[in-house]
Structures are given as structure tokens and as C-alpha cells.
């Protein structure tokens, strides 16, 4: 499956911005499950400095600076990404229990396991609050395989938590999300990660896109697709396996990975520092079109 994605971010300022410096993680990764054929970033006004580098988590980072005065900033990234048919269909066959995986990660002896063991630690946005471990252990019974336990956890989050776009912001603490059982994809991913990490299983945060289909008989609206977030679990011998607790599915043909990290703060699509500007308004539009 091949997609064309257009992700447009616009900031409107009440006052002139004299200088801004930014880091964008808007170029999709090429990984086991997908190939990013090309990706183009367009910045208006023109950036007078633009460089790319690969960060610790192997994400593509674009660094740019604009020193012309402006009131409106638009960053549009257009990418073509091909999703590969992965072995995900077979993962049920992998009957490694989660405790075995946990023990492997406790004493990492290969580069891969070492890098993975990073993700068993709680992070700033996924603190392990009281009750989280107990919540996790309901799914993670001693003899359970890693995959079935994760599926169970994903399903429980899907059923127990209410999807509520107005409820949370980026600064809503996880404990509130857990107590109220409400939030958006980002909160569910963070919560799932806290569950996994509380019992020593490695999980990472994935930011990306999800294709949306219009209700039957209606035309698809432009800009209606969305950035999305889910979590991913490490299964030795297989690699990272994605789980989408917001939709209770194993991502396969509609999820495109942008960047991965310990939590949202590692993958923030666009962050920056501005001089001047006053108040700002943000608008994000995503279009995801099937090419073949």
C-alpha cells in the first residue's frame, strides 16, 4: 500500500516574529514496516537555514531558522510512504511469554536488546503512578504470551477509557487521565507505556498518521485525516510490534510511522523558540491519499 501524505502546520501570530529556530520531526522514517520514498518540506516564509540530522532514536530531524519578520508561519511536508506487508499476521504464533521477554531485557547482552532496554524505564510523560502496575497485571498474567497480553491490554484501554478530545492537553498529567479514564490517542499511548514499563516490558511511543475513511456515500474532506499516536512493544526475534489502543487494532495498512521515542516529548513534530510574536493560533491539517 502506498500513500501520499500532506501535513500542513500553520502558526498565526498577533505580532511580528523577528526570529525563530525550530526542530521538526515531520519526515517519516524508513523502517522494517515502511519505506519513505520521498519527502519534501516547504517552509513559508523561506528558511534561511535548513539542515537535517538523525537523532538518538533514528528519527529524521529537520533544523531550520527563519530570520525574516513574519506573522504567519507555514510548514508543509509532503511525503510518499509505502507500507510493507509485514510478518505481523504471524505474530500470534510467537509464543514467547512476557516474563521471558522481561528477563531478557533486564540483562541486555546485544546491541539491540541494550537499545531496547532504554524503553523499560519510566519517562517524564509516563510516570508509573500507583495502580498502574495493578491495572497492567490483569492482562499480564504469569503464563501469558507477550502478544496476547498486549492485545488484552489494548482492548481493555479501548473499552475502559472514553475518547474525549476536549478533555486533555499535552500538560494533563497521566494520573488524571487514569483517574477519569478519558483522553485522546496520545494519552492512551502514554498510559499503555506506563503499564508496560511498570512490569519491565519495553514499549515505545509512536507518532504518525492514520487514514480515515468517510462515512459511506460521502466524499472525503480535505484535511480531515489526522496525526495519530500509538504504542509499540518489543518482541525478541521479531522486532517492534505496534498496537493502537485508540482503535483497538494492530496497525497494518492504515498507520504510517513518523517518529518514535520514549514519549511525546521525544517525537514532538514541531518545536521551536520564537522571538516576538505575541499570541499565536495553531492550525494543523493532514491529508492522506492512497496512491495504489
Amino acid at each position: 500500500m502506498k500513500y501520499k501524505i500532506k501535513h500542513s502546520t500553520t502558526y498565526q501570530y498577533s505580532d511580528f516574529v523577528t526570529l525563530c529556530q525550530n526542530q521538526a520531526r515531520l519526515t517519516p522514517k524508513t523502517s522494517r514496516g515502511q519505506i519513505c520514498h520521498n519527502s519534501r518540506i516547504e517552509i513559508v516564509p523561506h528558511a534561511n537555514y535548513l539542515q537535517q540530522f538523525t537523532d538518538y532514536f533514528n528519527n529524521n530531524v529537520t533544523v531550520f531558522e527563519i530570520s525574516t519578520q513574519y506573522k504567519t508561519l507555514n510548514v508543509t511536508v509532503t511525503s510518499e510512504v509505502e507500507l510493507l506487508v509485514t510478518a505481523n499476521n504471524d505474530i500470534d504464533n510467537l509464543d514467547m511469554s512476557w516474563t521471558e521477554v522481561r528477563d531478557l531485557l533486564a540483562a541486555p547482552n546485544t546491541k539491540e536488546l541494550l537499545r531496547t532496554s532504554e524503553f523499560i524505564l519510566p519517562s517524564t510523560l509516563t510516570p508509573i503512578e500507583t495502580g498502574i502496575k495493578e491495572y497492567a497485571l490483569v492482562s499480564f498474567k504469569p503464563e501469558e504470551t507477550l502478544i496476547s497480553a498486549c492485545k488484552g491490554l489494548m482492548a481493555r484501554i479501548f473499552h475502559d477509557f472514553k475518547y474525549d478530545p476536549g478533555f486533555s492537553t499535552i500538560s494533563t498529567p497521566l494520573s488524571v487521565v487514569f483517574a477519569q479514564k478519558r483522553g485522546v490517542c496520545q494519552d492512551f499511548a502514554h498510559f499503555a507505556l506506563a503499564c508496560l514499563r511498570s512490569i519491565g516490558v519495553a514499549g515505545r511511543y509512536v507518532s504518525g498518521y492514520i487514514e480515515t475513511l468517510p462515512p459511506e456515500g460521502e466524499e472525503k474532506l480535505e484535511g480531515a485525516d489526522a496525526t495519530h499516536a500509538w504504542f509499540s512493544v518489543f518482541l525478541p526475534g521479531c522486532g517492534w510490534v505496534d498496537f493502537d489502543p485508540t482503535n483497538n487494532v494492530l496497525p497494518s495498512e492504515q498507520h504510517i510511522t513518523l517518529a518514535v521515542g520514549r514519549d511525546f516529548s521525544d517525537v514532538s513534530p514541531l518545536k521551536g523558540v520564537v522571538f516576538g510574536g505575541g499570541n499565536s493560533l495553531l492550525d494543523v491539517a493532514v491529508d492522506m491519499v492512497r496512491l495504489e
Binding site: C185, T227, H228, F275, S280
Partner: peptide
């Protein structure tokens, strides 16, 4: 003149 942190793009809700 002091710098302000740009608001991080929020991950919008998925359908």
C-alpha cells in the same frame, strides 16, 4: 528581547 517557547504541535485526535 527574550525567547518564547513555541507551543508544541498537539497531536490531534484520531477518528
Amino acid at each position: 528581547q527574550t525567547a518564547h517557547k513555541l507551543n508544541w504541535t498537539n497531536i490531534e485526535q484520531a477518528q
